[in-house]
Nucleic acid binder design. Structure first.
Lengths: 205, 205, 205, 205
DNA sequence: GATGAATGAGCATTCATTCAT
DNA sequence: TATGAATGAATGCTCATTCAT
């Protein structure tokens, strides 16, 4: 087995072990056992226990960055938004184990790692906010606190993906994408007054 | 100092230590140091390290359960929903440290604990779903997958509260409550077609 | 057993283990076994493996510093020199195991430790040199490179003590002191020419 | 590159690595890196890590043995002694790195190795003692404990060479040789009584 | 009750050595 | 011969938990 392949084997083994036991309960021995290598071998490929986790997470981040398209306001905006939602959903659900790691196990780690994840989310939030602000100028996003919109969007996506990656019988992706899109477009509460005040949504913070 | 008081001191010390270092990096020694008791004393009050965390989390759960009012469809529904949102927000933000523990550090723990938290969320989701289904019958909640609505609501609340509990200068609670309410009522995307299909939202799952 | 006593037990155990196996081959487990404590106990008293060694060596250094008297040129100089030689010999031979550690095992350790020992010897050499220079002014030390004299003195003492601490049947201390004193006073080579050039000993740089 | 040459490359690489980091901190990898060979290659030339060190030290011992001339009492004794001192100084200072290894890093190794070095020194001491005893019969060495004279000589040489091999700007060898010779001839203490008792030096041990 | 000294199982990491290619 | 990937025994250190005082 060549180095590239063995590295992959170790990465996948680590991903699966982390996904099932969480980072802290996962022992380097578990990873090695699953990868069928001796413990020393692990350290030929990764400098320490955290290194695999970082590589896994970095890979996911990179895939997301690649998948998202910058929205071109001159063209079909709704379609592009749906495309992006679909892309993000796809990246995560293509690797449910990794998703579970990122969304439920990555917290509670050493400050350095939490910071890394935190800055990833901060980046996403920033992207989202500026996209939303642009949308507001174009009139396709409601007036209101773009920061708040970014937060709720992030929360929604996290939760929905976490559930989808955890569930035994996941929903068809297209349904997930569609639901997200519709929900963002109109919420779910339907009580007379609300729509009327839609544009007086206060600017938070 | 009587038993009751000492127990409280330990609980608060644990909460603060967990909030600042996370569960794994928090040592029983740290808790004892902050509580000004000897290490042995800790074990007179809690059977092991996880016990304090469980008690803290259980307390939070109980407070939430107490705070939420069953919606009475015969009276002002919107007001009651706002009341519930406000109550949940209040419980969490009254104890930001504990909120941070639950929302960012509680993950990554042993399966047993993750399960406990998982079942809490499942309970919340069930409550939400039945409330939403009832709302649908009453016509105040859009047609569509109530389960999905429950998920997104949960995600939104988690994210917004996490942010509020982490932020240096938190927003006024009333603004948070208001924003959540309005968002649930109408989303933020505003593009012609969407509202029209509002009621044909597919039943997911 | 109180903390003070246990600390002593650990120190002596460490000293003996280091003396018999050398620092590297000595395992913390060996020390604990000899001291009859569990491994964790060791770390209650010393922060890591090197800490005991440092404490042992520091103790020896301190005892030497205490034992040496500053030579008062107005009084019996030869007597005072003999006293100092005797004191140094006594400190080392009172603890042969520690002597062996310092003289044969302390080398070859991490740079930090080697540096510590190096600076101790440098200090001794400096003391010796200034004492010798003073002696030269008083006419009781031969003309010549005081630095060189300091070096040879150090070398002599190290070797004689190493041997004395290693030997099965050590020589009476008073003999050692006496021999050192006499040797320093007249070397051992006896060939006509040498004494004549005694005072033209070149100044080594 | 033929076997002989590669062996030399490895020996020199090992010598340099040992000299700069000490035996324990030197990794076989370091040696291979410096020698530009793969790790497996090392083991084609040496059976284990200690083997190179032993070969290096054995080489040095052999060179010393070769360099020293048996003193012929019928001819210029002083000259022959100076010659021997000069030869020893030369062997060590021609390879300062190796000198440093032998004098400061070789200690602290496994008992087996310490024993090897110990027996080398014992051999030197024996040689020295018999030479000194012969010298005493000839009247060119002071009466007294020849064993003690051998020890101090050894200590002096070790220390002076260690310093010379460590120093940035080493002294001219001839000066070193000269100083040693003169010192052995007359020590450095000059206080009236000493010379008078020269011949009553007690027999130690 | 309260203390804090003692415990020891547990784990990440290192590195000399081997061996298939 | 040379390579360098793989090995796995070995060990320093941590920390939750216990228990004699």
């Amino acid at each position: 087995m060549d180095k590239k392949a063995r590295r992959q084997v170790l990465l996948q083994a680590a991903r699966d072990v982390f996904a099932s036991k969480g980072y802290h309960d996962a022992k380097v021995d578990d990873i090695c056992a699953l990868a069928n290598v001796a413990k020393g071998t692990y350290y030929l490929y990764f400098k320490d226990k955290r290194a695999v986790l970082e590589e896994l997470v970095d890979g996911l981040f990179a895939r997301i960055a690649t998948a998202i398209l910058r929205v071109d306001v001159a063209r079909d905006v709704a379609g592009q938004i749906q495309h992006n939602i679909r892309a993000i959903v796809a990246v995560f659900l293509d690797d449910p184990a990794l998703t579970r790691i990122l969304l439920s196990y990555a917290a509670g780690l050493d400050p350095a790692f939490v910071k890394k994840i935190g800055s990833f989310y901060a980046g996403v939030r920033t992207l989202l906010r500026s996209a939303l602000e642009e949308g507001q100028k174009m009139g396709i996003v409601a007036e209101g606190d773009a920061d708040f919109f970014a937060s709720v969007s992030l929360g929604i996506v996290k939760e929905v993906l976490l559930e989808a990656s955890t569930s035994e019988r996941p929903r068809p992706r297209e349904e997930i994408v569609d639901s997200l899109f519709r929900f963002l477009a109109s919420g779910y509460l339907r009580m007379g007054g609300a729509p009327a005040v839609r544009d007086r949504q206060p600017k938070l913070k």
